[in-house]
Design a protein around this nucleic acid. Structure first.
Lengths: 332, 332
DNA sequence: CTGAAAGCGCTAACAG
DNA sequence: CTGTTAGCGCTTTCAG
């Protein structure tokens, strides 16, 4: 900045004024400063400025998603970035990969870089470590999973309701023996989906004690093996509810391996790419990750703009997409 | 930091020493400072430190990918983050979305935040605007697409060779009339793939002037329409080479809509999720985005560690994955 | 082993 | 309309 001032033959403060578009600078001076800045390829140091700036804003957000390689996370990221870019805000994005140590590590990395707000997918048993930061006024919004130990804005799918919807759909097609294939039990979202699933079965009069429930499935391979085992058991299910993305794919593979994809029903939670091109098409309870990301960003910016209402839960509806695999009727 | 120093009853510099793990502090003092920091939930301001620090490193990278919602970009992002996290470096990730104005805008946002290095996917006709920054010593690595107007490390797939591989495969199955469905012509990578495609056809003695080449396909819908048109033409192709992710998906849909997916061959460039579960399975020339991201990160860190060899091109091989759609023989 | 003073690049407050 | 001075939170340098 000093170099620019020297080259333009003005004071350092005038350069600052031009860079920030402050009033009270003559057009000629503006032009000279602009030229000098361009000539030197000058980029203002945003962080140095924020050190002294009144609002102290870094125009930066920290985003922690489940896994950058999951389409759900990709969509959330995209929506957040979209909203951020409109406000000239940059986004730090990290992957949780369902590793509790990475959660705190990433948050700390964000905080050291003085982000203006945090959008977090979490896995730790408690987010109490964020209480002080939230009290200090940093907007924190939880996405996809509800926090524990702190109160803050939270944006989630209607996990239990969505799972119930899937169950009702399968019940309507005559199924009574529906298996639950779920993600890790330490993931809050997974527990919600299981709850919705079991409660709906209970309401339909199915003895939930006899329902095949397999959890801690976290990738295709593990799910594949687990479902194969279940299909070979004495009393195999006539329908399967797979409560996550990758679990659904693993389930598809297992059903195909046993050539049961046309006789055992399958409904997945969260949409799967190309699901409509498979045979049969994969019926899913689709989430709305765009909306989740968008809402999360909205909440952060509302807080930054002064909203100080208490943190609330925002629930984004899911919807059933019928494609074939969920409409296979129970036999007998 | 002042507060921590006060609470611990030491000087501000001692706090600094403890935070940075510098030697020459007594164990007792370390303990007191650590306790005070924890009590106050103190997070050092990384940027304030870098203002004065000798190396001036922000421990931050800027990453610009094609589109966060494309699995290819997701994989690159993941690989870069993986490598970065090992070194305690955070990653800013932005999406280009093939908008030239966003390219410079994002780079500028990164630079204002004083990232240590840049990993960029580009779309502008020239990256000359980066010349000064590169000269200044900021490591810049281009991924997926080669830059124009500057020399720097570049990590790309062997686009032309991969396209040629696809062509050879289809020629071996008796095809002579192979259509090319490609992405936007202003994308360097797309031009390379077309070149590889046409040159290989030429080598096989096919008159390239008669080859159906459709470009500027950038999403499923446009591709769908374009291929439908081509299939209805007087001399429809017996095989299709789709030179990009989403183009491949659009092509699959079009072939199915005409019920030609078992009679017209299809080979795609870049892998598609669940490609092996479709009927027929989708034969592709797969890229290795993990390797691309990893290599790019390696190059940035090597530069930061002092490597000052001239910028070079790093080519990541592709490989043909045979799944069915590419092995349909030409009729007649 | 520890602290005081100076300064990184910038903006706030005030003076001209 | 423009420049000067102080200070943001930290590290450096140098003195105890």
């Amino acid at each position: 900045m000093k170099q620019v001032a020297a080259l333009a033959g003005v004071g350092i403060k005038t350069v600052s004024r031009v860079i920030n578009g402050e009033p009270n600078v003559s057009a000629a001076t503006i032009a000279r400063v602009t030229d000098a800045a361009r000539a030197l390829d000058y980029q203002p140091d945003l962080h140095a400025g924020n050190l002294r700036r009144a609002d102290g804003r870094s125009r930066t957000l920290g985003l922690l998603v489940g896994s950058v390689s999951n389409p759900f996370s990709g969509a959330v990221h995209r929506a957040v970035e979209e909203a951020a870019i409109e406000r000239g805000v940059a986004v730090f994005a990290s992957s949780l990969d369902d590793d509790p140590s990475r959660e705190e590590q990433s948050v700390s990395a964000f905080l050291r870089r003085r982000v203006d707000g945090l959008i977090l997918t979490t896995i730790s048993p408690s987010q109490g470590y964020l209480a002080a930061e939230i009290r200090r006024g940093t907007p924190v919004v939880f996405v996809d999973r509800e926090p524990s130990g702190v109160t803050a804005d939270t944006v989630v799918s209607d996990n239990a309701a969505g799972a119930a919807l899937a169950v009702r759909h399968m019940l309507a097609h005559g199924h009574r023996r529906i298996a639950y294939l779920g993600d890790r039990g330490d993931i809050q979202t997974a527990r919600e989906r299981r709850r919705g699933f079991l409660e709906e079965l209970g309401r339909a009069g199915v003895a939930t004690s006899s329902v095949p429930v397999i959890e801690n499935l976290h990738d295709e391979a593990v799910t594949f093996d687990a479902l194969l085992g279940l299909l070979s058991s004495e009393d195999p299910p006539t329908a399967v509810f797979s409560a996550q993305n990758l679990v659904t794919i693993g389930a598809i593979r297992a059903l195909r391996a046993r050539d049961l994809h046309h006789s055992v029903a399958l409904v997945g939670f969260d949409d799967v790419p190309l699901a409509d091109l498979l045979e049969p098409g994969v019926t899913v309870v689709a989430q709305n990750p765009q909306r989740i990301g968008q809402l999360a960003a909205e909440r952060v910016f509302a807080r930054l703009d002064g909203d100080d209402t208490p943190g609330a839960r925002h629930i984004v509806p899911t919807r059933l997409i019928v494609r074939g695999s969920g409409e296979i009727n129970a036999i007998g």
